[in-house]
Design a protein around this nucleic acid. Structure first.
Lengths: 253, 253
DNA sequence: CATAACAGCGTACGTCATACGCAGAGGAGA
DNA sequence: TCTCCTCTGCGTATGACGTACGCTGTTATG
């Protein structure tokens, strides 16, 4: 005869339900001195300033002038806090595509928006993701991506696959870029000197007879020139969109 | 007047230099009781059995019947051990493409080979990568990938970008797949019931008016049907290869 | 005013990576 | 043969971390 929460499908952590606005008030007891958003914002501030590794429960608590264990009244575990940090860190999605643009321009805009977020918050890439998206903002990004493909002839499942394809690319490219940046900071090398140094290292290691193709790449100086990283990103994105375009035309024709 | 190691570019950790076979013997002192490969193999065994989270220095030492601190005579840090684990975990690259196949079949084979490795060793995806590839096997994979594009008209830099594109996709797709698998294990749900459960959860959360496109996807039952995950993988791969093909034909024509 | 739910948090525990230094092994040189 | 010197193995100790547990004091409701 206990209260039935719902038709209760899979169980959602309380703090996540809170993010969706479905959370019963607490009519008894003292007024809470903090809130989940306060805590998450503090954690995001720490990550922005000192990286994800600096985000410990005690550090976040210190940021709020509270004791470590006080946080556990609001979040069930550090993993839960991380999940909420991702939601906040990504921020609101770029919104549905402007009506006058075609799917390609829309998806491009969508991809660049995520690219920009990840450039400024590279710690997002270090959060171990532990499941499919369930937070409001994450599903908002998904919605906006799907809308870009609204006018096309793709099946719903294909739209989804296309989005996964693009997000995956954006994340991977951002991962590589931030690794170079972090590596150069760790080694105390000028960022512009990072790739040349890497190129020299590989050249020293490999035997041209066993690694001919790689040797040719090095000889071409590909890794030396520091061309605009945005060009590199645009290259891959265009390849993917070309592939999508081929599919759309096949479905249409 | 001290010995000059080399023209010494960037510094490589000793254990990694060992992996390249350039390491001077130690002519003095007692004979080592273990070796770097022994330790790495033990660590890989632990990860295969109980996941990456189970890989602690003490657990690996226990696996070898040694004391924790004994390992530090062979590897400089846990991060170094992880890097070596990745090298061993990936294993040897699939080899250069058979001579009779074109670039597309070659790259497809290359991508499926990585896909297969990641399917069997999903812990590889959890290792925080901290820099561009420098271990022998990793560069071996790169070499084999580059060779697939040997006959094409692409510039060296473009070949590199194409490989990054594909690896990124393979890794991302494997990440999503393994997350579903791990999530179902953690929740004690049948793997085949995982996506339907997720679908029901999202349906409960979202407001169809604010998430129309997402709602349509759910209504189409896209997330319910458990089609062959390999088909999903093949779909994205084909889109990428279509994009590459478009580029190659533009460069050629 | 009594009660019960709840906020804040001090303490304690188990785990982890790893710095440090000692004991013993076993070639190299006397 | 004796003496070093270097290297291996590892015991101990440190500091950080996540978090279980339970106490204290607050506050709205009966």
């Amino acid at each position: 005869m206990a209260a039935q929460t719902d038709d209760s499908g899979p169980v959602l952590p309380p703090a996540i339900e809170g993010a969706w606005g479905l959370r019963e008030r607490a009519p008894k007891g003292p007024r809470p001195g903090m809130s989940v958003p306060t805590i998450v914002d503090a954690a995001v501030r720490v990550a922005d300033a000192d990286g994800l590794a600096a985000v410990s429960m005690s550090r976040v608590a210190k940021e709020l002038g509270a004791a470590t264990m006080a946080l556990y009244r609001y979040v069930g575990s550090k993993d839960e806090l991380l999940l909420l940090m991702v939601d906040t860190g990504y921020g609101p999605s770029p919104g549905p595509p402007p009506p006058e643009v075609d799917w390609r321009a829309g998806l491009s805009r969508w991809a660049w928006a995520e690219h920009e977020v990840l450039r400024q918050r590279s710690w997002l890439l270090h959060v171990p993701i532990s499941g499919p998206p369930i937070t409001p903002q994450q599903l908002g990004w998904m919605e906006d991506g799907l809308r870009c493909l609204d006018g096309t002839t793709l099946a719903e499942g294909e739209k989804m696959s296309v989005l996964l394809l693009i997000t995956g690319y954006v994340r991977h490219e951002a991962t590589l870029t931030s690794q170079v940046a972090e590596g150069s900071r760790a080694a105390g090398v000028e960022p512009s000197e990072m790739m040349p140094a890497y190129s020299r290292l590989v050249a020293r290691l490999i035997d041209p007879a066993r690694f001919p193709a790689l040797h040719r790449v090095l000889a071409a100086g590909v890794l030396n020139q520091d061309d605009d990283p945005d060009d590199e990103f645009a290259f891959g994105l265009d390849r993917i969109l070309d592939g999508v375009e081929a599919l759309i035309q096949r479905r249409a024709g």
